[in-house]
Design a binder for these strands. Structure first.
Lengths: 213, 213
DNA sequence: GTCTATATGGTGATAGAC
DNA sequence: GTCTATCACCATATAGAC
């Protein structure tokens, strides 16, 4: 998928690098991906990459950031839709799942970035550099968690521990980055249909009867 | 957790290496873990490891295998319990979740091994060496999937696509390897309580009303 | 069975031409 | 802005002492 260049987007010369890096990181993971791998995918040499990024870690962080910002932008219009919490959650969850599928390369990197942080598999410098990203990611997750709490207060959801419930549904919503694989001729409608099933499962898990209005 | 040595277990000298390797692979991932890291954790040098394993990849595969065999052994007693499919699934799922928590190091490696395979992040030699493990892992997942199908036929579960449903619940059941972190003084009862909540979420997702008999 | 070298190759990062 | 060297380092794997 090509990145369109617009507001809040990286300049076009960086966009190609981001796209190639995301793809490589998705395929091999951070540690196993070399800068030469990314350069090869660009039909270039690493001189090009090091002109724009000071280190492999810096490049990874920028892919991480870009992937996460796409998610924020995607759900933003829905945040104040005036509907009840359970319904806002449903709409945002669907958008989120579709994002996971359509921007898979980037979302894998977001996942790996969070994982590296949680496991402490980061150098002290990375820990500092990632701190802001992790914080922002955490606030993204909070948006969903707060809606769960509100929906439970409304009597529209039933679950025991809020933290565990949010972990479970968040993993569920993210899971297509692991098991989804694109098929030839697949349409946006097909992807939305997958998203609907994922969200339906999560909603039922949260004790919501009618998951598919 | 120390490995007890018994039937079908690796000899004790390998058991220490397996344990150390699992821990390192869990913390840093396969690519970022060096043989020296594992040796350091053993208060030894890599000579000791290379005496027992011919390569890093070979060591990883053995951790993978051991982790998976623990899972098979754990659910084995429940497979022919005579109960209805939905109930057998519930019991096996609970054991599985508890396994994910109590043998986290190994289960992370199983996960990463599967992931590496799916993403094609393997050398041709690894692909051959992993093939048998991946196949066995796949059959393990099939045990759960077949029970889902049976339970749906019994009218005890409701979901749309069997493949998607199984992916979603399997990810749910595995998810503690990512978000669980041990607390001081935590008992087996506490862990089972977490497992119960995870299984309850999954059962609700599968359209089962009364998830906690 | 485990240790201490050491050979060998790859990777992150830099310098300087163009 | 991108390329072609090139350096310094680290990691896998081996050889041979003990």
């Amino acid at each position: 998928m090509a990145l369109s260049v617009g507001e809040h987007m990286p300049d076009s010369s960086r966009a190609d690098i981001l796209e190639a890096a995301a793809h490589c990181f998705m395929e091999r993971g951070y540690a196993a991906t070399s800068i030469d791998d990314v350069a090869r995918r660009l039909d270039a040499t690493k001189g090009r990459i090091y002109h724009h990024y000071s280190s492999k870690s810096d490049l990874f962080a920028d892919v991480f950031r870009f992937g996460m910002e796409m998610n924020y932008r995607a759900i933003e219009p829905l945040r104040r839709s005036g509907e009840k919490a359970v319904e806002r959650w449903r709409q945002m969850a669907l958008i989120h799942v579709v994002q996971m599928i359509t921007t898979r390369q980037f979302q894998r990197v977001v996942w790996e970035g969070v994982e590296m942080h949680l496991r402490g598999a980061t150098t002290p410098e990375q820990r500092t550099a990632f701190a802001e990203l992790i914080e922002r990611r955490s606030r993204y997750s909070d948006i969903f968690r707060d809606l769960l709490a509100e929906a439970r207060d409304d009597g529209d959801m039933r679950f025991e521990n809020l933290g565990i419930a949010n972990q479970l549904v968040f993993i569920t919503l993210n899971s297509p980055i692991f098991w989804y694989s694109p098929r030839a001729g697949e349409t946006a409608r097909d992807i939305e249909e997958i998203g609907r099933q994922v969200v339906a499962f999560a909603l039922h898990g949260l004790g919501v009867r009618k998951g598919n209005p």
